[in-house]
Amino acid sequence: MDERRLAEFIGSKSGTAVDVRSVRRVALRPTRAIFDVDTTSGRFAVHMKVDGSTGPAPDTEFALMTSLAEAGFPVTAPRWSEPTGEVLGQPFFVTEPNAEPSVDDPSAATPAAYVQTLARLHDLKPEAHLPPVDADHAIATQIELWRNVGRSAGGSRIPLLDAAEMWLHKNVPLLKRTSLVHGHPGSRNIITSNGQVVDVVDWEFAHVGGAAEDWSFLATTASSTNNPTEWRALIERETGTRLSADEWSYWEAFNLFKLACGNRTYLAQFESGADRSPAKMIAGTAVFHDVLRRLMNIVPVE
């Protein structure tokens, strides 16, 4: 990263001369690289588009975070956006650092706080935060988006992943109501302090869709503090959500498909040298295969 140009950008936006003391990449996801930046004006997080990646532009994520912050939703304070790519070679935006989790969380209170926070998100008017989407095509659009994320990694085709995609398209449930969906509401992305949610992070794949997508993600991937059955009972109790067994299965498959497509990009990042950590290699191979196995356990042989 060109630290001088980043310092100039932050300085021009904040109206004061800024020096960058250090830059450390803290995450490399399918479409975003996140940097922890320490400057003479304080610490910031820089969210940059990954070169060659598909998916929503950083500016869209920035606008969403801005409108959520204005609505009083717990998100990291967004600061400035650079949508052109002229400053650092890729579009990016700057936020305050994510909130730090509290170490003395009463864990019993946390699952209910997760559910209440997501319910609050789902109750917001989606058109106030993201461009409108035709409900009839909302789910199919997301399947296509994730397919493209997976294919952006290159490599040979994975026929089982194609089979899962076809099954998801064929069995798209009727969406009675669209909601603002986070897309990855796992425990790493919902930060709590003393049992209260203080920050929800990682909005790159937020979209307008079915709230059940988030509920399923939470129930099947959120944390080991509750098992899926307990999560489902909690979600039903807190929100009145009622999903049939087939609907839970569909949304679990949908989320596994997203994870599989996302994990495909990790092997490409490892191979290209963008991230040579063993964790990235494992995520791109063993975890990818594990997720694909779980996905195929749901997708029936026709």
Binding site: L160, P278, A279, M281, I282, T285, A286, V287, H289, D290, L292, R293, M296
Partner: peptide, 16 residues
């Protein structure tokens, strides 16, 4: 084929 891959990758999953 998928299960064969996974059988060899158990060591990687455990490391995570």
């Amino acid at each position: 084929h998928l299960d064969d891959d996974l059988a060899g990758e158990v060591v990687l999953l455990k490391a995570l």
